[in-house]
């Protein structure tokens, strides 16, 4: 395997992201739909690092996105008057987002990763809901009223600058985060981390017996996935919507959507989240246009059917199809 060959699997992934971006740029009125697809793809890509690689179901994943969103909102409302920072403020905000969600993930990981299976899923739901009610209960960070940063963004970047951030740059950041998450996923897959996690996913006890430090690798994947989720929350929510409300930011259905995307594409595959994210966004957007108000009623049985009929996902099926052919190196 030469140096470049290692990165072959990223080609189709980046091709899809590039095509999506260009489609949004050059098709009139499609940018919002494309931004939605990019958000879902990024969400799947970030979530897949933990869920796909370890097989642990973090049902409270959205808490990390929420904390990232708060990290960005607090940065903007604290630093908007510091003029010399300029666009650097956004970078500080991204850093704060990653640190916020990273810290929470260390805390949660230390506690909840001792549990397995259903117990882990329930514990993470508990963390998500508990954290939200704590924020509202002690009125931290604006309590249930949340934080609104639109006026502060306008003050820092001017009216045009602020609207460019929330209608264009926020989405570009989401694309970049998705691409970065895909790159990290491949790096992990091709390193000791990936092999350890593959062993863990197959049989955690057996992996421990042969000397794999499962806790260490689980925590690495958990923190990476959470920090990426925090970045998505900071950009796709705070910068794009210019507000954070706890009731929305901690909404459990984002976790479920992330799971749907990962399963739709194929859990533990590199290309799965992109394919799943685009498919899911197209399905949701298309149903919203053709059957307004009924999209969930139609989507729910579709999801159930997919789980029952093709639990390995689109890319999982494709991977099995191309095995032994020249395309094998590209589809991972």
């Amino acid at each position: 395997m030469n140096r470049l060959e290692k990165f072959y699997p990223l080609f189709p992934v980046y091709f899809l992201y590039g095509a999506l971006f260009l489609f949004g740029q050059y098709t009139k009125g499609m940018w919002q739909a494309v931004a939605l697809a990019a958000f879902y793809a990024a969400l799947g890509q970030a979530f897949n690092v933990f869920l796909g690689m370890t097989g642990y179901v973090d049902f409270g994943y959205v808490a990390f996105m929420a904390l990232g969103a708060y990290g960005m909102a607090l940065t903007v409302s604290g630093l908007y008057a510091v003029t010399w920072l300029g666009g650097g403020m956004i970078l500080v905000g991204l850093l704060a987002a990653a640190v916020f969600s990273g810290c929470l993930s260390v805390a949660v990981g230390a506690i909840a990763l001792r549990l397995r299976g259903a117990y882990f899923a329930i514990a993470t739901v508990g963390v998500n809901e508990g954290f939200r009610f704590l924020l509202e209960g002690i009125k931290l960070w604006g309590g249930s009223e949340g934080i609104v940063i639109s006026s502060k963004l306008r003050e820092a970047f001017g009216t045009d600058g602020a609207s460019a951030i929330s209608t264009f740059w926020a989405d570009v950041f989401v694309f970049l985060i998705a691409a970065f998450a895909a790159f990290l996923t491949l790096q992990y897959m091709r390193s000791r981390i990936g092999y350890a996690l593959a062993a863990l996913r197959a049989d955690e006890d057996a992996a421990q017996v042969i000397g794999v430090n499962t806790t260490k690798y689980k925590i690495i994947a958990f923190i990476t996935s959470s920090a990426l989720g925090g970045l998505i929350g900071a950009t796709a929510w705070t910068l794009k919507l210019t507000y954070v409300f706890p009731a929305e930011a901690f909404a459990i259905h984002y976790t479920v959507e992330a799971i749907v995307i990962v399963i739709l594409g194929g859990a533990g595959t590199l290309m799965g989240p992109v394919a799943g994210g685009i498919l899911y966004a197209a399905l949701k957007y298309g149903l919203g246009v053709t059957f307004p108000g009924l999209q969930l009623l139609i989507l729910a049985p579709v999801i159930i059917a997919i789980i029952v009929v093709v639990p390995e996902g689109v890319i999982g099926v494709l991977k099995a199809k191309v095995r032994g052919t020249a395309l094998e190196k590209f589809i991972v």
């Binding site: 506690i111 909840a112 001792r114 117990y119 508990g130 009610f133 704590l134 209960g137 002690i138």
Partner: peptide, 29 residues
């Protein structure tokens, strides 16, 4: 919680429930 000034008793009750959930899962699953 209603006795403590400055907090939302409703949210704190919910928080306490989930806090309890985590503690039990940890120490007495």
């Amino acid at each position: 919680f209603g006795l403590v000034p400055g907090i939302e008793p409703f949210s704190m009750t919910q928080f306490f429930a989930f806090f309890l959930l985590l503690m039990i899962l940890l120490w007495k699953p």
